[in-house]
Simulated scan of single mutants.
Amino acid sequence: MDTAQFEACWHTHIRRIVAYAERHVGRDVACDIGSSTFLTAWRTWDVVPPEPLPWLISVARGHVRNHQRSLRRRGSLEQRLALLDESAFAGPDASVTATERAEALAVLAAMPEHDREALLLVAWDGLTTEQAAQVLGCRPGTLRMRLHRARARIESTSTGPALPIARSAQ
């Protein structure tokens, strides 16, 4: 690696890479995208072409896409969490703290939809596994497997005692 060539590339193109990123992700993240782009260039300097700008923009484009995907996933998770929080009813059990509730809702929101739906049909809607399987159009054995995965996920991510949703779904 020729450090002088890399530094010259950096000084020549960093403003254009950051400007490109800023058009797509805003000022707050653009410098991070620029840094990530040049980190990629540093790590793979032997494949950077003699005219690096198009290659650098292509790499920056990939980092922009990753950032946008991350934002979409986070937004989707926050939306699911908000929907779950709105639909969760307060239980008469005083042992369910706000922290446990928030933890349970976050775990539920992060679950694959078919596992979460199976758990909620049984735990919140009070259906039997056979009834829930009928609602979801699957076999009772399939539903039991989904419940098992959902409960295992809750138990593996729980930091405290068993979460209320796991207790009520058994």
Score class of each variant (00 low, 15 high):
A106S: 15
A166P: 04
R153W: 02
A123K: 01
S70P: 11
D93K: 12
V64H: 13
H114E: 15
N66F: 11
Q131H: 03
L81G: 07
W42T: 02
A162K: 05
R23N: 11
P112R: 05
L147G: 01
V122F: 02
C9N: 08
D85I: 07
W45Y: 10
A150V: 12
P112G: 09
M111W: 02
D115Q: 14
G160N: 13
R149E: 00
V25G: 01
C9W: 00
P52Y: 05
E117P: 00
S156W: 08
Q68P: 14
D2C: 05
R144G: 07
E7H: 11
A8D: 00
H67L: 06
N66R: 05
S95M: 12
E78R: 08
A30M: 12
A88C: 11
A98H: 15
S35M: 14
H63I: 08
R167A: 01
R149K: 02
Q134E: 12
T157Y: 08
A41L: 03
A106G: 11
P52D: 01
A162F: 01
H67P: 10
T97H: 01
R27I: 00
S168P: 10
T157P: 09
A41H: 11
A162H: 03
R146Y: 05
G141S: 08
V64I: 13
G141I: 03
P92E: 06
A109Q: 14
S58K: 14
R65W: 12
A132D: 02
R72P: 03
R101D: 04
L120T: 07
A104M: 10
Q170N: 14
A41E: 00
A82E: 15
M145S: 06
C9Y: 03
A118F: 11
V29S: 13
V25T: 07
H148A: 03
G26P: 05
W45Q: 15
A123P: 00
P92K: 06
A21D: 04
A88N: 11
C138H: 07
S76I: 15
R80V: 02
I154E: 03
Q5C: 11
I14R: 09
H67W: 06
R116F: 01
E22I: 05
Q170M: 15
R72W: 00
T142I: 02
M1S: 08
T97P: 12
P52A: 04
T142Y: 09
T44Q: 11
E113K: 04
T40A: 13
M1R: 09
W55H: 14
R151C: 10
G137D: 00
